[in-house]
Design a protein around this nucleic acid. Structure first.
Lengths: 211, 211
DNA sequence: AGCACAATACCATTTAATGGGTATTTTATT
DNA sequence: AATAAAATACCCATTAAATGGTATTGTGCT
C-alpha cells in the first residue's frame, strides 16, 4: 500500500517539482498536491494521510493556523514544515505544537526522504549545521555603490545608519564628532539624490547592498 | 540536439524538482543544475547554454550581479529570472539589463516551458494577472509580522515608511491626518520595541519581509 | 610642490521624528 | 447590548535629522 503524502505550497513549480522528485525515489508514494489552503483542508478532512508537508506562507495565509486547526485530524500523520523562513522562534513554535520536522527549502531530496521514512515516534527534527548567514563579503563594497563615488567612511556610516544607529551613536562608535557624522550624511544624501534615511535604506535594498 | 538548460538556485528541493519537471515534459532538454554562484559561473564560462534560469538570491548573493557579469557570455542565451521576489523595481531592473523573462515561483510548469520554447526575439515576458499590493513591498503580510500584532493600517504605514515617505506624505496618501500617522508610528515602535525607522526597516529585513 | 579629495568639525535654521498623554469614533466579536 | 480592538486625532515637549554654509587638516597622486 502506497504511503499517502500531501503537500501544500503556493509555489507551483516547487510543489510539482518536489512531487516529481518524490515519485522518482523508487519508494511507493501516492502524492496529492495543493496550492491553496481551502482545498488542502478539504482533502485532509476526508482522506487519511501518512505525511503532510506544508509551507508556512501559502498565499499569505499562515501555515501554522492550518496545522493547528487540523491537528486532531493529523494524529497519525507525520507533519513536516518545509519553508524558506528559518527563524528560531518559528522552529520553537513548530516543536511546541507537535510538528515532526521543520525543514528549510535548501534541504536535499535525500534528507527529505529520510525524514519521511524515519520512525514517526522519533524526536523533532530540523536541519543541522545551519549557520545563519551573516554575509560572507561586505556587499556594501559593491560596484554599484562605487558608481556613486561613496567614500570608505561614508560606506561605514551607511552601514551604521542601516543598523539603526542615530548620528550620535555613530559618532560614539567611530570616535568622531556628531557634526562630522551630520556632514557625511549630508554628502551621502547629495550623492545618492535622496533626502532621508528611509530612502537610503531603500536605495541599499534596490541595489541589493544588504544581507 | 538537446537544448542546454542551466538552472541556478540554492533551494535544492526546488532546483532538483524543477529539473525533474523539465526532464519529464517530453522536450529534448539537457539540464545542468547549480546551487552556488561559483560553480554556475564556471560552467557558463566554459559551456554554451540555450537557457539560463536563475534565482535572484543565491545564498545571499545577488543574482543580478551574476547575470550582469556574465552578460557578454550570454548573448545567445535566453535568460530567465525565477524568483519568489515579485517586485516592480526588480522587474524593471530585469527589463533594463536585458533579461528575457521574469517569473515568480508560483508559475506553472506549462508557463515555464512556454517561455523556454518561445522565440527569443520576443519581448520581455513576466507573469500576467498578478495583483499587486498597494505598497511597495508585498510580503509584509507574513506570519512573522503577525506575531507582533501589527494591525492592517499599521502594516500599510510600515510599507510606506520603508518606501521612504515622510509622515506627511503618508498622511496625504492614506487621506488621514499627520497626527494619526504619528500615533501609528508610535504604536509600531512600541510593539516592535524599536525607536527609529531605520530599526523598523532593519526589522523588516531581518525577518525577510522585504523584496 | 601642487592638486584633488577625503575626513574632520562647527554654526545656524528648518523640518521631521519621537514619546508622553488623552480622547472620540468605527469595527469586529462575543 | 456589551466589550475589545483598531483607527482616528489632537496637545505638548524633546530629540534627531536635514540642509545651507564655511573651514581646517590629512592623504595620495603626479
Amino acid at each position: 500500500m502506497p504511503k499517502q503524502i500531501v503537500i501544500c505550497d503556493d509555489h507551483l513549480l516547487f510543489l510539482n517539482g518536489i512531487a516529481e522528485l518524490l515519485k522518482n525515489t523508487g519508494n511507493n508514494y501516492h502524492i496529492s498536491t495543493f496550492s491553496n489552503v481551502h482545498s488542502c483542508r478539504q482533502h485532509l478532512m476526508e482522506h487519511a494521510a501518512d505525511v503532510f508537508i506544508c509551507d508556512l506562507n501559502i498565499n499569505n495565509f499562515d501555515g501554522f493556523l492550518l496545522l493547528e486547526e487540523l491537528k486532531p485530524k493529523l494524529k497519525h500523520t507525520k507533519t513536516i514544515i518545509l519553508t524558506a523562513y528559518y527563524e528560531d522562534f518559528l522552529i520553537q513554535k513548530a516543536k511546541r505544537i507537535g510538528i515532526n520536522a521543520f525543514l528549510k527549502k535548501e534541504t536535499t531530496a535525500e534528507e527529505l526522504v529520510d525524514v519521511i521514512e524515519s520512525d514517526q515516534s522519533k524526536e523533532f527534527y530540523t536541519n543541522k549545521n545551519y549557520k545563519k548567514d551573516v554575509g560572507v563579503y561586505s556587499s556594501i563594497d559593491d560596484p554599484i555603490i562605487n558608481k556613486f563615488r561613496i567614500s570608505k567612511q561614508e560606506k561605514e556610516i551607511i552601514k551604521l545608519i542601516i543598523a539603526g544607529l542615530t548620528s550620535q551613536e555613530i559618532a560614539d562608535k567611530l570616535f568622531i564628532s556628531k557634526t562630522t557624522v551630520t556632514t557625511h550624511r549630508k554628502n551621502i544624501h547629495r550623492k545618492l539624490e535622496i533626502s532621508n534615511s528611509s530612502s537610503l535604506i531603500k536605495f541599499a535594498h534596490e541595489n541589493n547592498l544588504l544581507h
